[in-house]
Write a protein that binds this DNA or RNA. Structure first.
Lengths: 337, 337
DNA sequence: AGACTGCATGAAACCGCTATCATCATACCA
DNA sequence: TGGTATGATGATAGCGGTTTCATGCAGTCT
């Protein structure tokens, strides 16, 4: 920068002012600077700039597993919004398959804080309350996506309206004659995400006057790998209870469930209707095409980033709607066995 | 850091030495420092550290489109290797759908260089030769993945052995009686990636004494969206040429191709065998399950990152093998129409 | 015992930029 | 015309680390 200043015959400070555009600089002077910049091929050093200003123009996004196609789409949304705002995105794919993911998460978090990221977007509640508090103390802005209830003060949030969405799902199933609806639910790990879907499902059943039975829920411990959905569905099916439809925590689980059905000679949708959540791309590619509660994945990412950009002390909150996409995996109910 | 130094009764320099572990510090002194660090909850500031040392412990990975499930898996591999090495990963999803992606790419590159990333992993040749040269001049290490032939001096590369892989594909098809094999190829955009697959296909055909006909190739301009594959296949099918199998640039295209076949009442695999490349997760979830040339996606990412880590002036090169996975989308050849 | 070597530590310069404050010229006012 | 407000620019002190160089102490050799 000193070189540029010398070349242009001005001071380093003026060069800085021209480049950052924070303070007005006289036209002819600025021109001189720009010429010097381009003739020397100068590029500003963002590391130094960050040290001086405290802003890194970098945000991090934390997700549980890049292997679930939902997240890449979400990240894509974050990224495109970030790039238009001139930010870079650090991706942390979590450590879903690692045994002590808590400590891995903690290490990553420390790294991000000490790298001074401007903001953090977390899908689900991968962080403990204490971690969130620490972050807020270190002036890292935090956006949580998909968290059901109240977030700690100062945290921004993007909610997904599963209540409304599940209404659509259950209404759809109900109109097809399904009265006994099973589900595949997540437990442990990322409980907040799990519960919001689970509760919305229960409420939707209740509002339609349909029964919720504990023996009709198949539990999975891991949500981003369809093998778990397959197992859970297999157990449910073998127990032989008389449900005619199943709604799954997400599409990965639903795909696993359809595999299990196939394995056991249960036809979809003739014998069993299956619905998922997310509308990942595979859902419309498979046969039968999966009926699912579609989430605007890219949009959620964009909204999350814009939440981060919003000035103010945080506490902002946006809500996005889900939309049922009825395809071939759901059909008229029929008594099984 | 000054606080820690005061608390421990030593100088800032000593604290730095203890924390970075570069120089030996006497046991008792070091203990004092560690105690002070933990009692004050001190965390080092990586921005300042980077300014001083020149290393950011951050790498960037450039891909054309996060919407193609191949890339997230690849990135996941990069990431897991990066995290074990204590690095962060900045993801740039490219701008496949943007009209002037060249200028977008250029801007992103400038940003990355001026953020002083330690290294850059590029899938395919998204960069121009000039850009690569500039990067090498700015001491950013570069790894290119999937590039066929010679890379500029100093660039590290991970190659995928498509020649061997395509041999497997064509041998498989040949053994099923297919003699007339069409293909869906990519043109423009990322030409190097396109050509390596295209050429390997041609060579494999030649070695089996099978004909390569220009009218049997369906061209696509965009490779990460199955709609393109669907269109290309549609054109090929409507032209009614007598091929009995088609090998596609990647699985996304193959999935599109299968849709086109379905639309036109062409049965897979009875009337037409379809094979893809990549083995993305959807390929094994759909019906019929897609026969494909599987790439070790995570492994490729890990290898790419380790290439970056290798000391030396670059020019390293690793080769990974592809493996045919025969599933249901290929079957015995049968004369069509 | 005195000179020399080696090693742990402290002091200060420096990485490249921003931001504060001082300076100076110009414009405006009475 | 002198005094003051205004606005552009220059000089310089940080931002929070690392690293060079200087210092002083302990140990070794003759």
């Amino acid at each position: 920068m000193q070189d540029v200043a010398t070349e242009a015959g001005v001071s380093k400070a003026t060069v800085s002012r021209v480049l950052s555009g924070t303070v007005h600089v006289e036209e002819p002077t600025a021109d001189l600077v720009w010429k010097a910049v381009s003739s020397l091929g100068y590029q500003i050093d963002h590391v130094a700039k960050s040290l001086a200003t405290g802003a890194t123009h970098t945000v991090a996004v934390l997700v549980s597993d890049l292997g679930n196609p939902f997240y890449p789409d979400f990240i894509k949304g974050v990224e495109s919004a970030a790039h238009s705002a001139g930010l870079s995105v650090i991706v942390c794919g979590g450590a879903a398959e690692v045994s002590d993911h808590a400590s891995v998460m903690e290490r990553q978090l420390q790294m991000l804080v000490s790298k001074r990221v401007d903001g953090l977007i977390v899908y689900g509640m991968l962080l403990s309350a204490a971690q969130v508090r620490r972050l807020l103390g270190s002036q890292v802005k935090v956006v949580v996506v998909g968290k059901p209830k109240r977030t700690p003060r100062g945290v921004r949030a993007v909610d997904i309206d599963f209540r409304e969405g599940m209404q659509q799902v259950v209404a759809h199933l109900n109109s097809l004659g399904h009265r006994h609806i099973a589900s595949i639910q997540l437990r442990g790990y990322d409980e907040w995400v799990a519960r919001s879907r689970h509760r919305a499902f229960q409420e939707a059943l209740a509002e339609h006057g349909l029964p919720y039975r504990k023996k009709w829920v198949g539990w999975v411990d891991q949500v981003d790998d369809r093998a778990f959905g397959r197992e859970a569905m297999g157990r449910l099916l073998k127990r032989g209870d008389e449900f005619t439809a199943v709604v799954c925590h997400n599409d990965m689980m639903a795909i696993g469930a359809m595999q299990a059905a196939h394995d056991l000679g249960v036809r979809v949708p003739e014998d069993l209707s299956v619905v998922g959540i997310d509308d990942i791309f595979a859902s419309s590619a498979m046969r039968p095409r999966l009926t699912t509660l579609a989430l605007p994945r890219l949009e959620i990412g964009e909204i999350a980033l814009n939440c981060l950009l919003d000035e103010g002390r945080g506490g902002k909150r946006a809500v996005v709607q889900a939309q049922l996409v009825a395809r071939e995996s759901t059909g008229p109910a029929r008594r099984r066995r």
